[in-house]
């Protein structure tokens, strides 16, 4: 059932698989201006993913830069067999997680089973009439948030998430359900208030 929650599946992106995008080909040949155009096309989605994974705007900006610097270096590896956006998002997720690992306390945050007081932080962030799901997602505990973003928003399978994060598939599923429970509880509380 959980796979039905993936609302922004990568496969839904409107992009031709068969034809080679001349912009990508030009960037692969070292055309920086072409690469800048690609950056302008895709940076919004890359930044959104980085922000949801890191839950920190400044860190997400740094991670987005890191992604586009590394993608430039890896661009020759893109073979046009899959959608560019699919490839880009896969690279983005891996680079951002790797970037987050380098931040102080990553392993402590990832390995901690729970963080106390997580539910109390909620109501300060969305007192407006519209529930801001983005604001709720970034308040999830780190491991639950990363799993939720990768599975529910980006459409990754739990096996893939497990491999990316160095956890088991069962842990990924458990964290996903935990994230859903927390979000559902917070949304319910907010709706009740309104």
């Amino acid at each position: 059932m959980e796979s039905t929650t993936a609302v922004t599946k990568l496969s839904a992106l409107p992009e031709s698989v068969q034809e080679k995008d001349p912009l990508i080909c030009a960037a692969q040949q070292g055309d920086v201006q072409a690469y800048r155009t690609l950056y302008e096309q895709y940076s919004g989605r890359v930044f959104a993913l980085c922000y949801r994974l890191t839950a920190d705007r400044a860190l997400a900006e740094d991670a987005t830069q890191e992604v586009f610097i590394q993608v430039w270096q890896k661009l020759a590896n893109y073979s046009h067999h899959s959608r560019f956006s699919t490839w880009l998002h896969s690279v983005t997720a891996n680079i951002t997680i790797s970037y987050m690992r380098k931040q102080k306390g990553w392993w402590q945050r990832m390995l901690n089973i729970d963080s106390s007081g997580e539910a109390q932080q909620l109501y300060a962030t969305h007192c407006s009439s519209e529930i801001d799901l983005e604001a709720l997602i970034v308040q999830l505990p780190e491991r639950a948030r990363v799993v939720f973003v990768l599975h529910a928003i980006e459409g990754y399978r739990h096996q893939d998430i497990a491999r990316m994060l160095g956890i088991t598939s069962g842990t990924s599923k458990a964290q996903f359900h935990r994230a859903r429970q927390l979000l559902t509880q917070w949304i319910g509380g907010a709706e009740h208030e309104h």
């Binding site: 929650t5 950056y39 705007r57 983005e134 949304i187």
Partner: peptide
């Protein structure tokens, strides 16, 4: 669970960083 799924469907795909990131990328490249 329905409110969460509804909100997920409306979640924006894009977000805008507060600063222009391209100059740093271009320099690093």
């Amino acid at each position: 669970e329905q409110p969460l799924d509804r909100l997920l469907k409306r979640l924006p795909r894009h977000a805008t960083p507060a600063r222009d990131l391209w100059p740093g990328i271009e320099h690093a490249i």
